[in-house]
Computed example of a mutant assay.
Amino acid sequence: MKLKRKIEVAVISDVHLGTYGCHAKQVLTYLNSIEPKTLVLNGDIVDIWQFSKRYFPKSHLRVIKKIIDMASEGTEVIYVTGNHDEMLRKFSNTSIGKISIVDKTILKLDGKKAWVFHGDVFDISIQNAKWLAKLGGYGYDMLILINRFVNWCLKSLGKEKYSLSKKIKNSVKGAIKYIHNFENVASDLAIENGYDYVICGHIHQPKMEIKKTKHGQTMYLNSGDWVENLTALEYQFKRWKIYNYSADKLSPFFADEDIKDMEVKDLIAAITIVDKPLKKASSD
Rank of each mutant, 00 (worst) to 15 (best):
K2R: 15
K6F: 07
K6I: 10
K6C: 04
I7Q: 12
I7P: 00
V9M: 08
V9R: 04
V9H: 02
V11C: 08
T19Y: 05
Y20P: 05
G21Y: 07
C22N: 11
H23K: 14
K25S: 14
L28C: 10
Y30W: 14
K37Q: 15
T38Y: 07
L39C: 09
L41S: 11
D44W: 06
D47N: 15
D47L: 07
I48A: 11
Q50N: 15
F51E: 09
S52E: 10
S59T: 11
L61N: 04
R62I: 07
V63R: 03
K65P: 00
K65M: 04
I67T: 06
M70I: 09
A71G: 06
E73I: 01
E73M: 11
E73S: 13
G74M: 07
T75H: 09
E76V: 10
I78N: 01
Y79I: 06
V80Q: 07
T81G: 07
D85S: 06
E86L: 13
E86W: 12
R89I: 05
R89C: 10
S92G: 11
S92F: 05
N93G: 02
I96R: 15
I96Q: 11
G97K: 13
I99V: 15
I101P: 09
I101C: 13
I106Q: 09
L107I: 12
K108V: 14
G111W: 07
A114E: 08
V121L: 09
V121Y: 05
V121W: 05
S125K: 14
S125I: 14
N128W: 10
A133W: 14
K134F: 08
K134L: 12
Y138N: 12
G139A: 04
I144V: 14
I144A: 15
I144C: 13
I146M: 14
N147V: 07
R148N: 15
F149S: 13
V150F: 14
N151K: 08
N151D: 13
N151C: 03
W152K: 15
K155H: 14
K155A: 15
K159G: 04
K161A: 12
Y162S: 05
S163R: 05
L164E: 03
K167G: 00
K167H: 11
I168T: 10
K169G: 04
K169C: 06
N170F: 04
G174E: 13
A175W: 03
A175Y: 09
Y178M: 03
A190N: 02
E192K: 13
E192Y: 02
G194K: 03
G194E: 01
D196Y: 00
Y197W: 01
I199D: 01
G201S: 00
H202D: 03
I203L: 05
H204I: 03
Q205Y: 13
Q205E: 09
M208F: 00
K212C: 02
K214Y: 05
T218P: 00
Y220M: 00
Y220D: 01
N222Y: 06
D225K: 02
D225G: 02
W226I: 03
E228D: 08
Y235Q: 01
Q236I: 11
Q236C: 04
K241P: 01
K241V: 08
Y243G: 00
Y243S: 02
A247V: 08
K249D: 00
L250D: 06
S251T: 13
F254A: 04
A255L: 02
I259W: 03
K260T: 01
M262C: 02
E263R: 09
A269S: 14
I271S: 00
T272C: 10
I273N: 12
D275A: 02
K279N: 08
S283G: 05
S283D: 06
D284E: 07
D284W: 08
